[in-house]
Design a protein around this nucleic acid. Sequence first.
DNA 1: ATGAAAGCGCTAACAT
DNA 2: ATGTTAGCGCTTTCAT
Lengths: 349, 349
Amino acid sequence: MSGAISDVAALAGVSKATASRALTGRGYVSAETRERVVQAAATIGYVASPIAASLSTGRTLAIGVLTSFLNRWYFGEVLEGAEGALRARGYDLTLHHLPPDSPERDRIFDSYLTNKRFDGMISIGIEASQDEIARLLANPRPLVSIGGNIRGAHSINIDDQALGREATEHLMTLGHTRIAHITGHDAELQTDTVHGRRLAGYLAAMEDAGLTSAVHVLPAVHSLPGGYEAAAQLLRDSRIRPTAVFASTDEVAIGIIIAARRLGITVPAELSVIGIDGHSYAEMFALTTFEQEPRAQGRHAVEILLQDLEDEQRAQAPDSGEPGSTVSEVRWPTRLVIRQTTTRPESAE
Amino acid sequence: MSGAISDVAALAGVSKATASRALTGRGYVSAETRERVVQAAATIGYVASPIAASLSTGRTLAIGVLTSFLNRWYFGEVLEGAEGALRARGYDLTLHHLPPDSPERDRIFDSYLTNKRFDGMISIGIEASQDEIARLLANPRPLVSIGGNIRGAHSINIDDQALGREATEHLMTLGHTRIAHITGHDAELQTDTVHGRRLAGYLAAMEDAGLTSAVHVLPAVHSLPGGYEAAAQLLRDSRIRPTAVFASTDEVAIGIIIAARRLGITVPAELSVIGIDGHSYAEMFALTTFEQEPRAQGRHAVEILLQDLEDEQRAQAPDSGEPGSTVSEVRWPTRLVIRQTTTRPESAE
DNA sequence: ATGAAAGCGCTAACAT
DNA sequence: ATGTTAGCGCTTTCAT
């Protein structure tokens, strides 16, 4: 089976060019000829070589995805959404894991960005250094950033600071004053990160409420065990024990709940910032969460990216004259989802 | 910057052929010439086009990865291991999400397997139909299957049936007799699947111990909420409540623990079959688990695959004459890791 | 050790 | 509407 397009052309009694036109749909071919070519292709089981096509057209029909985590729910869901949308549009997805503080980040950046096997890229939760951002933007291919700190490219972000404030104020509404916040490492130092902004929202809310002295921030590794450990530390001393916790990550929030249960502590009013769509882990634990549909975010990133690619192509066309190099900045909506069991502080009961 | 190899050649004052030899390391080039070429390349910031190279050599330096889940720990860890190993060897990884019962599985199989943009593939947890397996094996490119039901290709598998037996017998050793098993959906019907084999091990152990009448099997969705729901159902009625549970999946096992705690039930002797390496979620919950290092499995699959590719290339060489088309079947070691808090049944205390 | 030339499989002007 | 021709950028015989 298989064979090259010249075989198809020969069998159909046409030229390579006509065969190509018939098969790709670009250019004029009589219906009758097309039919003959398609038949011929089917007969010998012809499948076009995307590599040869790429070399000729310059388009790869592949999108690179950079993600900071492969083993966390949120990132997995976003990836799943992007994968499905890309496949539906006929694109391949090339995966690149780019964890924070990876010693090889530099090499990855170099090898990936210079490798010309992609038409565009999507970054998921990448917090990049100034240098890295510059290199990403210097790349001629379009980029859509989901939830990172990259400006100047297409982006999908949520308002993390508003979220932090809303979360904190929600707990205040329930009567809490001793509200702790579990954040990421170094969030205090790095202001332009997801966790830095959430922290800022928390701090602003606490200050506005005159609760500055009750501020209690603890860094944690973003994982279930990380949350568990942080919570164990946080809840150890009953005298300074908070009555509510606002955690920056789902995994951490769940770790906290489990730690609390294990320590025999009445479950405090919990709050995680990230909601998982589909089957919501957070929901199961009766956490109050922010719904933000990661899968849909992944899909939407694909739409933006492919739209940009189309626009670019159109810009090549003779008639159009617009540069169209504007960048879309999507503020993804979030919704505070309040579960039944969110509790009030004991003193307020 | 950029430019083609002809530019490099011109700048270095050599032919394209020599430039290629100097840059790729294949063929004789004087050290001095090589140096000149490398300098020239650096000067104009030359980066080779992998696409052109692929068209010429037939090798893509890309590996396709088929995975059944993107949002579960085990699969994410395997993927992470494979990704790192592939990158280290200079390969790209093309990701394909192939969930069970996906309506588009057929299309995916077709479009992916005929797309010639990969040198080999790795499947993670793919339970394929006979037809699908036939199509996978018909593909000339090598395949390494991790934890699925694919025979006839390189494979890495654990002894799921032995695991099921070992798990069940461990609980018996602790004195349990009312041991329930939470499995996947339809595991009873499909014998040649991971969960089917684990179920078989459980059933065999129960039978051997004369506990056939105590057999209690419940299907669940493989997720935290799935385990939670199954457990809620399982533990509802205290008269038929098991004293121990053997769950087929980490997520499910953790869901069970949480359900048990929430229902105010003394935590039964828990057992999950899959251990996560690195930070073990299961460990945190004091589950008894099977350690099986998913990351290392992913890395190992890459080694096997690239080894096969090398062998194939060597087989092309004039001297060698071996077919070398044997298939490696790795039985990955597992280790039962018993946590402190695994408990004995109440009656035995 | 190096160069000349052919070719991987396709697409896209351009010509008819 | 179809065919001719010239590449896309690289690798690789085959000569020298």
